Amino acid sequence: MTRTRVAVVFGGKSSEHTISCATAAGVLAAIDRDRYDVVPIGVTREGRWVVAADEAGRWAIEPGRLPEVTAADGAEVTVPMGAAGALTVVEPGGVPEQLAQVDVVFPLLHGPFGEDGTIQGMLELAGIGYVGSGVLASAAGMDKHYMKVVLAGAGIPIGPSTTITARQWRTDREAAVAAIADLGLPVFVKPARAGSSMGITRVDDLADLPAAVEAAQQHDPKVLVEAGIAGREIECAVLQGRGDDPPRTSGVGEIVVGSEHAFYDYEAKYFDADHLDIRVPADVPPDVVRRMQRLAAATFEALGCEGLGRVDFFYTDDGDVLVNEINTMPGFTPFSMYPMLWQAEGLSYTDLITELIELARERPVGLR
């Protein structure tokens, strides 16, 4: 039998480049090599696609070393539009040659220029199938402002927030600050279109707001400010159903952060695992778990997601459940919450990768 050829794409132009490389390290180490031929493709911070080393260790985060894709890693790769599955490699000064005919792309890109519908649109134009959500769901899932608009329209409970555009911050800062003050303190200031807890600041005093906004704008000119919610953050994993089946949901998990961090920030998430307590399953009443599972599936469907997603909740001190966000390409290392939640359901990391690839193979590109 001819094996399915999978292009694993990682790196990218966003500030989450390093995290994407670490995700690729996990997938390259675990993917079923008896079933799939793997074509690793790295995307440099400048957006250049190159043939990457098929070496999991090369892309892992290690003490004192952060992985990065560079132009020196390999020959440049192009994706001809309309040539379904074709990839072309270009050596400097050489004649372009076909690299491989791929059956499916596994885009392990986090953040803008990858997770936000951009690569999904390119792959649709090229006629190549891919893992995960399509253009609209990816774009709406990346932009937390529009995600909340969609969820509110679907009647899904969310927390209070306000959005500050770059123009508003320049021309009508007073109104922006007033809208934030109406949320009450503390608030969390974050880039509207970034992930991995990049650029997030907890603000307990409005005097600290300008610095927090400017920190968020280092990642995105559009900033989302959310009201602080007293309670716990709980997560639920979602997998697309097979055929016409509804989305599948896992149990729920919780990450408890030590007192060294004010919240689950970037440093805590990726560089201070010793002060994290990952609880799978989370200690949540069964009826609340079922409510979260229903809301996770409803969130997945409200945005039209496909493949995978992780829905993050606030479980408030009053017993309410609010959807914080959905991640259409959640953290996907073997030690990330999404794979761990499915492992608790009996689906191993390798089998989860296989399931996602097979879901992508069954799905046509184009309107569906």
Rank of each mutant, 00 (worst) to 15 (best):
R3H: 07
M337I: 00
T88A: 03
D143M: 08
A230D: 14
D205F: 04
P286W: 01
E16G: 07
V90T: 12
A282R: 13
A227K: 14
A178K: 14
I156Y: 07
G258Y: 09
G64E: 12
R5L: 07
E358G: 09
A53E: 15
A178S: 14
A181L: 07
D73C: 10
D277W: 04
K190A: 11
N324C: 01
R361A: 14
I229A: 05
I119M: 14
D103Y: 03
V323Y: 00
L347V: 14
V189H: 05
T118F: 02
K144P: 02
G127F: 03
A262G: 09
T18I: 10
E62F: 00
L367R: 15
A24R: 02
A237M: 05
G12E: 02
V102G: 13
P67H: 01
A154Y: 11
S15I: 06
V284D: 03
V321E: 03
V9F: 03
R173I: 10
T171G: 04
S197E: 02
P221S: 06
A126L: 04
A176R: 09
D283S: 12
W169R: 08
L224F: 06
S14Q: 02
L185H: 08
E254Y: 06
T118H: 07
D277G: 05
T171A: 09
G47S: 08
G159H: 01
E358Y: 11
A212W: 09
D277E: 13
F113M: 06
P107V: 07
T328I: 06
P339N: 00
G47Q: 03
P221Q: 09
R363C: 10
G304V: 05
G331S: 00
A60Y: 08
A194V: 12
L295I: 01
H17C: 07
P286A: 09
Y338K: 05
V79T: 09
T350K: 14
G85V: 10
W49S: 13
P285K: 00
M142R: 12
T354L: 04
A216L: 06
P330K: 06
P286M: 00
V69K: 05
P92V: 04
A207G: 15
A215G: 10
Q101P: 14
L295K: 02
G153F: 10
D312M: 03
R33H: 08
P80N: 01
R310F: 07
E55K: 08
E46A: 14
E301I: 05
P247H: 03
D143Y: 10
D116I: 06
V284A: 08
R279P: 15
P339C: 00
Y349A: 06
L303D: 05
I19E: 08
I128K: 08
H219S: 12
V223W: 07
L239C: 13
E233M: 00
C305P: 09
K190D: 11
A52H: 02
Q240G: 13
A71S: 11
